[in-house]
Amino acid sequence: MPGKMRVETTVNGEAVEFLCEPRQSLLECLRDILSLTGTKEGCNDGNCGACTVIMDGRIVTSCLVLGVEAEGSQITTIEGIAGAGRLHPIQQAFLEGAALQCGICTPGFIVAAKALLDENPNPSEHEIRLWLANNLCRCTGYDKIVRAVQSAAAI
């Protein structure tokens, strides 16, 4: 069996290094090696978006990225979204708008929404829905999620 490889990367602004097998996804490395369990595993196949993180300024499904591919990259997970002791406006809007029920999809939605609002601070409802097309929620029916993103955009 191939041995472990050493990976140096930056997660939520902090330089980190870890050892992983080539077959371990970035999602597994974040959760199981770096103990950043905020990022969730849903389908583990790129369909549901629960594992969405920001990698070098772009949102990616971390289940479809190998840990070894993260070498030298900048990664932001849900743990890096909130400020010191204060929720990010998107998180606050999800909370106040009850834009979650079971919560498994929520970190992925919030990370994806942050990337959207960073690039496009005033998206239309249609743009929000299209952007979040690769994030699935089986509880809310999406309306409250879309409204939470709209209300965060309005702040």
């Binding site: 790129g46 978006g49 969405t52 772009r58 949102i59 990616v60 499904t61 479809l64 990225v65 994806a112 990337a115 299209l130 952007w131 097309a133 690769n134």
Partner: peptide
């Protein structure tokens, strides 16, 4: 390809 996650990678 309507997934930004897929278009990015």
């Amino acid at each position: 390809v309507t997934s930004p996650q897929i278009r990015d990678l």
